[in-house]
């Protein structure tokens, strides 16, 4: 409960700040972005994040899954290693490289974000599948096969479902990181809230920076809470108990 109050408060402050900055109209000779511009920048921001995230999920989960297969045991350390190391590369460097290699604009931003967002998803899918207690997994898979599930059904209905909470946690992380990275992508001309921030930095006007930064932070908080909600909603009680039992060990 306290968590929600604090979150709500923080959100209120951030949104209040945004409205306040926008209502300033202008600071010195610099014009603040009009309300419609802030709104369209937010929508653009969401578009970038969403496109990158959806692609990251559709590519990341299969890669993470495949790296757990025995057939891939030779390349999976490389894959997972890359995913881990990749995350330590600063986002700024990442965007910079993407801009340099792929040119400026929306597409380059989405691709940079997609690669970056994929990393926690790959890592968590791999970890999620590997983290299921091997004895439990062997028993459950044998039962599933023995009752006549096809390989595909065993994967979809059993293995992936058991790993689901951890995979979702990966998606949640990547989403939040994505919102922040998308702001930095403003540097390479992707549009979105990053554009406001970059402009603000260029002209050294704090109010302008805040006008972009505050809604970015608010977005991150909202999306995080949203996926958190989805997480609790789709995780069956039986798995929660299992997870807490594992924690206690």
């Amino acid at each position: 409960m306290r968590k929600y109050i604090i979150l709500g408060l923080l959100l209120g402050i951030l949104l209040g700040l945004t409205i306040w900055m926008t209502s300033l109209g202008s600071v010195g000779i610099f014009k603040m972005a009009p309300p419609m511009k802030v709104l369209s920048a937010t929508v653009r921001h969401l578009q970038i994040v969403e496109a990158a995230e959806l692609l990251a999920i559709t590519i990341g989960i299969p890669i993470g899954f495949l790296s757990t297969r025995r057939a891939c045991r030779f390349i999976s350390p490389v894959l997972i290693g890359t995913a881990n190391v990749g995350q330590t590369v600063p986002t700024l460097a990442f965007i910079g490289i993407a801009g340099a290699v792929l040119g400026m604009g929306y597409k380059a931003a989405v691709i940079a974000l997609l690669v970056y967002a994929m990393l926690p998803i790959i890592r968590n899918t791999y970890a999620g599948i590997r983290s299921v207690d091997p004895a439990l997994k062997a028993a459950v898979k044998e039962a599933a096969r023995g009752m006549g599930m096809s390989m595909l059904q065993v994967t979809a209905k059993v293995e992936m479902r058991l790993a689901m909470p951890i995979i979702l946690a990966g998606i949640r992380t990547s989403m939040v990181v994505n919102v922040g990275t998308a702001a930095i992508a403003g540097m390479i001309g992707s549009g979105g809230l990053g554009e406001l921030i970059v402009t603000g930095i260029a002209v050294r006007v704090t109010q302008l920076i805040l006008q972009g930064a505050a809604p970015t932070a608010a977005l991150a908080i909202i999306l995080d809470a949203l996926i958190g909600g989805v997480e609790t909603w789709v995780t069956p009680r039986g798995l929660k108990a299992l997870k807490s039992a594992q924690w206690q060990q």
Binding site: A139, V140, A143, G148, M149, R161, L162
Partner: peptide, 22 residues
Amino acid sequence: PNELRRGIGYAIQNIGLFPHLT
């Protein structure tokens, strides 16, 4: 094989109930 198995009841020592299902 899958059709065959669906026609044969199967119970294993470790029970192997699906923890994510009711």
